[in-house]
């Protein structure tokens, strides 16, 4: 199951940046998000999975696609010139950094501790609410404040003359 969802996520992500067509790329992003939602389910966290579907694949990508359609860039853009240096450079970076990242994850102390940990309790909305409003209250409020600031900034940017 993990492999299936991980593959869906990876294929979606790969397609997202390899597609020349913007709308197709957006739809692949949805595929990627669905895969992530499946991974959340496997982590015994259905709430996060549902929210992933509602917020990310439901609202945000729809908005993104709306903007793409509004800009009417339906033609597939041809690359202006091929960039061999960047391409090979990225491949080299993956080869160089990939094994390192895998090693880093494998050797991390968290992985070792989680293997002996008891099976996780299923996350419910009740527990999520408790976590957000009791244990991580400050972080939650700060995030809210940040979002509020971002919203005000967006409004003031769009409405030049208030």
């Amino acid at each position: 199951m993990f492999l299936i969802f991980a593959l869906i996520t990876l294929v979606g992500a790969l397609m997202t940046f390899s597609m020349r067509n913007l709308v197709m790329a957006g739809l692949s992003l949805v595929l990627c998000f669905i895969g992530v939602a499946g991974l959340f389910l496997l982590l015994a966290n259905p709430v996060a999975a549902a929210l992933q579907m509602v917020v990310y694949s439901g609202a945000i990508v729809v908005l993104v696609l709306f903007v793409i359609m509004l800009l009417a860039s339906h033609e597939e853009e041809e690359p202006k010139r091929s960039r061999p240096i960047q391409r090979w450079g990225s491949v080299a970076a993956i080869i160089a950094l990939g094994p390192g990242a895998v090693l880093l994850v494998k050797s991390s102390p968290f992985l070792a501790s989680s293997q002996v940990a008891p099976p996780m309790e299923v996350m419910t909305l009740h527990r999520l609410g408790g976590l957000l409003f009791k244990e991580h209250l400050v972080a939650f409020e700060i995030a809210g404040l940040l979002l509020l600031a971002a919203m005000i900034a967006a409004v003031s940017l769009v409405k030049r003359e208030l």
Binding site: L27, A50, L51, M53, G58, V122, L125
Partner: peptide, 25 residues
């Protein structure tokens, strides 16, 4: 007790718009 509850129809409902969007585009 599946933990998804009423969030599931909402999540699925959010996906429904893609049928329209993809058909349209």
């Amino acid at each position: 007790g599946n933990g998804m509850g009423m969030l599931f129809p909402m999540a699925i409902g959010a996906m429904a718009v893609y049928g329209v969007l993809v058909a349209a585009w």
